[in-house]
């Protein structure tokens, strides 16, 4: 496959950055998207150029490190997968592909396509945990959890914290991430006692990091590689309001 790549290049956090054009010739259709970038980078290095910097780790869709916006859509327009799971056979010979970093003020660009997503770590550090040791895995049914709650909690816990929700949102809102991280604990008996404290702290940290607000357009849900439902946002709205009322009057 012969492709034209329009890639965001930025030397460092203070550089203005620009889109640069690369011709990617003879790319095998069976290559993954990141392998395609590896090939382009090898050629850049051979030619004495600076390779395109991008984040990656497991390359099997579970670590949440890869973070490319491909043709305007985080992780590409393919549903339910991460960038590393995108294959070149999904493109056509002669295509022009735009590759940009995840865009948000709270995710500053470090270099080229690498962004700093430690804002997510600070949100989790604010309350996305259970502060007492909950022991080893329980015997089945020792701690009764309704099946629906267990399923909803598990679905929310699938979040890999990649930040695609923020990158896709028109407002760079982190509500799907925060909703998922809060819901997977709030739905379980181990997480319930700290629910109010958790949502107040996490939402306040989210706002302090400079993420935008949710306008219910569900772009986040559409690009989430783990297909987390925007139901977790409704639950976060409900839990935060209840916690704020309790904080005000109790």
């Amino acid at each position: 496959m012969n492709l034209t790549l329009k890639v965001w290049r930025q030397k460092n956090a203070t550089d203005h950055g620009r889109i640069e054009t690369y011709e990617a010739r003879s790319i095998p259709a069976e290559a993954s998207f990141l392998e395609m970038l590896d090939i382009v980078n090898e050629r850049l290095i051979e030619g004495g150029g600076e390779p395109i910097h991008f984040d990656h780790d497991c390359r099997e869709g579970i670590c949440g490190m890869c973070s490319l916006t491909i043709n305007g859509v985080p992780h590409s327009k393919e549903r339910g997968i991460t960038t590393c799971q995108v294959h070149m056979r999904k493109f056509r010979d002669g295509d022009t592909i735009w590759i940009e970093p995840f865009r948000a003020r709270a995710f500053p660009v470090v270099r080229d396509l690498v962004v700093d997503r430690t804002a997510f770590d600070r949100i989790v550090a604010a309350g996305g945990f259970i502060s007492v040791r909950t022991g080893s895995a329980q015997d089945a049914n020792a701690l009764p959890v309704p099946k629906d709650d267990a399923d909803a909690s598990f679905a929310a816990a699938a979040c890999i914290g990649c930040g695609a929700c923020v990158a896709a949102c028109k407002n760079a809102s982190a509500m799907l991430f925060v909703g998922a991280k809060a819901a997977h604990l709030n739905l379980l008996p181990q997480g319930k006692p700290e629910q109010d404290k958790r949502v107040l702290a996490m939402v306040r940290q989210m706002d302090a990091e400079g993420f935008g607000g949710c306008t219910n357009q569900y772009e986040c849900e559409a690009v989430c590689p783990k297909e987390i439902s925007a139901d977790v946002i409704a639950k976060l709205n409900r839990d935060y309001t209840a916690a704020a009322v309790k904080e005000a009057v109790c």
Partner: peptide, 16 residues
């Protein structure tokens, strides 16, 4: 919300 994304996408896209 506007302040939350200072640098816009060169190729913006809308999914849904």
């Amino acid at each position: 919300n506007r302040a939350a994304r200072t640098e816009r996408y060169a190729l913006p896209a809308t999914v849904q």
